[in-house]
Nucleic acid binder design. Structure first.
Lengths: 190, 190
DNA sequence: GTCTATACACTGATAGAC
DNA sequence: GTCTATCAGTGTATAGAC
């Protein structure tokens, strides 16, 4: 086990994850993947049927990793507010943006169901998971019971995704941190 | 005045605005612009030095339009909360996303100062404008005075930008509306 | 499994005629 | 101002040898 073939496949997938993060789907060519991975043309097309097949594998893996990372903070100790704050305040490479959220802007990803699915599922899961925590907070009297937990959760996730947009626009992580601070201020003591 | 040359330039700029919105900078080719605008190759290169020159003109125009649109709600009547709510609840083509925010994901836009500047300036202006309104609301006792108005403003703008991301990921406007409802619920009565 | 060769359209432009 | 010709390089593969 752990054959050479497996190693090549993995290098291709990892490299594709990187390039999709940096340049998006439209901006990533098979040639660029091959060069960065140090894998030949024939080799790439032996393991994957083409660019979109490889991208689907890369996105699935990124989605799984993002979910595992998020769960570290969301399943941690503390009150509902503390767990959401821990997630929002987690150390992030802000200017690189979100590996999954970035794909939502790519027309070819949105158009191809295979590629959009991991993106959709990730946000469905994340919003649902945070909504659970908000609902717990409401049940404990920590948050006001008026708003739908799903609405609050969507706002929390949107602040992160939008924070990345503001940071990249400014070429500075600061607007991201402002948005997170603002969201936490609004969330506190509700 | 209103020469034919002006009309051609305008058609090129408008077409480029559309294509940048739909496909981003990396995904938009000079040829695609020419074909959709019904303008020949030589004509395009007569009026603009190249793709990035044309994109700069298109982004400047989009930035100016976005600003004028936003000001309609932000300068309207009502309390601070009401004006922010009016802006967030304005009718939008949610699945098309934000013409300006979309550009923040494009590596070639972020890398080229000429192209990033209109994006940066738009968000600087928008966050500043909303921060003013939040500060007014705090002065009037409408909002709690603890949080920095700039943080609240960044969170509000991030909810919009992130809401577009969630909507495109889901291929449905609903998550956008959830995020907006969530943000307004948090903002209310503060 | 990996390599090289080949293919054909598209990218982003420049040159010069009209 | 607009048109057509031309160009070197890239995008996204397929074919067949090793």
């Amino acid at each position: 086990m752990y054959s050479e073939a497996m190693a090549t496949q993995d290098r291709l997938i990892e490299t594709t994850q990187e390039l999709l993060w940096e340049r998006g789907y439209v901006g990533t060519s098979p040639k660029a993947i091959q060069q960065r991975a140090g894998v030949g043309q024939g080799s790439m097309y032996h393991h994957f049927t083409g660019k979109s097949d490889l991208a689907a594998a890369a996105l699935s893996r990124s989605a799984q990793q993002l979910r595992a990372q998020a769960e570290q903070q969301l399943a941690g100790p503390g009150t509902a507010y503390e767990r959401i704050a821990a997630y929002l305040l987690r150390d992030r490479e802000v200017l690189r943006g979100c590996r999954i959220g970035r794909m939502a802007q790519d027309p070819d990803v949105i158009a191809e169901a295979e590629l959009r699915r991991p993106v959709e599922e990730t946000f469905d899961w994340l919003c649902g998971r945070i909504a659970e925590i908000v609902a717990e907070g409401q049940a404990d009297g920590e948050f006001a019971t008026g708003p739908d937990p799903a609405d609050i959760a969507a706002a929390v996730v949107a602040v992160l995704q939008g924070g990345y947009v503001l940071a990249r626009a400014a070429d500075s992580p600061e607007p991201f941190h402002q948005a997170v601070r603002g969201a936490l201020a609004l969330l506190r003591n509700r």
